Simulated scan of single mutants.
Amino acid sequence: MTKINIQADCNNAPKKEFLKNFNIAFATADTDFLLNHVDEDIQWTIYGDKKIEGKAHFEKAVLEMKNYVADEMGIFTIITHGAEAAVNGSMKMKDKSYAFCDIYQFKSAGSKIITKMYSYVIKEN
C-alpha cells in the first residue's frame, strides 16, 4: 500500500483537489482514473526520456507503470491558474527516490480533461 503525504493545501479548490487525486492515481497505478481524465490527443513530454502522443500510447505507458507502484509519495505544492497547473513532489519506489514537477494544460479553465503534460523527474541520491 502506498503511503501518501500531502503537504499542499487544496483549501476548497476543486482543480487542486483533482490534481491531488490525479497524482495519487499515478502513485497507486489507478489507470482507469488516469485514462478517464486525459484527452484523446494527449501529449505527454517526459523531459530526458520520451514523448507520448495520443490516448492509446498514454494508456500503454500507464499500464506499464502498474509494475512500479510507489511505496511512498509526497505532494508539496499544487498551483493552478486558468487552464494551466503545476504539481511538485517526491516518490519512493523500492530503494529509489525521485523528485518531480509536472506541468498540466487542460481543455479549458473549468475542465478536468488534460490535453498536455510536461514532466521533469530527477533521481535523488
Rank of each mutant, 00 (worst) to 15 (best):
H37L: 00
H37E: 00
H37N: 07
V38G: 01
D39Q: 05
D39M: 04
D39N: 12
E40N: 13
E40Y: 03
E40D: 11
E40R: 07
E40W: 02
D41V: 04
D41S: 09
D41L: 06
D41Y: 05
D41H: 12
I42S: 00
I42Y: 01
W44I: 00
W44M: 02
T45V: 15
T45M: 10
T45F: 13
T45N: 10
T45K: 09
I46V: 07
I46C: 04
I46D: 01
Y47Q: 07
Y47E: 07
Y47R: 02
Y47C: 01
G48C: 03
G48W: 02
G48R: 03
D49T: 08
K50I: 03
K50P: 01
K51I: 12
I52K: 00
I52T: 02
I52A: 00
E53T: 13
G54I: 11
G54N: 11
G54D: 10
K55F: 09
K55Y: 08
A56V: 14
A56Q: 15
A56G: 08
A56E: 14
A56C: 10
H57I: 04
H57C: 06
H57W: 05
H57F: 07
F58W: 06
E59C: 11
E59S: 14
E59P: 12
K60Y: 07
K60F: 04
A61H: 15
A61C: 06
A61R: 15
A61K: 13
V62F: 04
V62W: 07
L63D: 07
L63I: 14
E64T: 12
M65K: 02
M65N: 08
M65R: 06
K66V: 09
K66N: 13
K66S: 11
K66W: 12
N67C: 10
Y68G: 15
Y68T: 15
V69Y: 10
V69F: 10
V69H: 10
A70Q: 09
A70I: 06
A70T: 11
A70D: 13
D71K: 03
D71N: 12
D71F: 05
E72W: 13
E72Y: 14
M73D: 02
M73L: 15
M73P: 08
G74R: 09
G74D: 13
G74M: 14
I75Y: 09
F76V: 03
F76Q: 10
F76R: 09
F76D: 14
T77E: 15
T77A: 07
T77I: 12
I78R: 06
I78A: 08
I78C: 06
T80R: 02
T80Y: 08
T80H: 05
T80N: 03
H81Y: 04
H81F: 02
H81M: 04
G82Q: 00
G82Y: 00
G82M: 00
G82P: 00
A83G: 05
E84H: 11
E84G: 05
E84S: 05
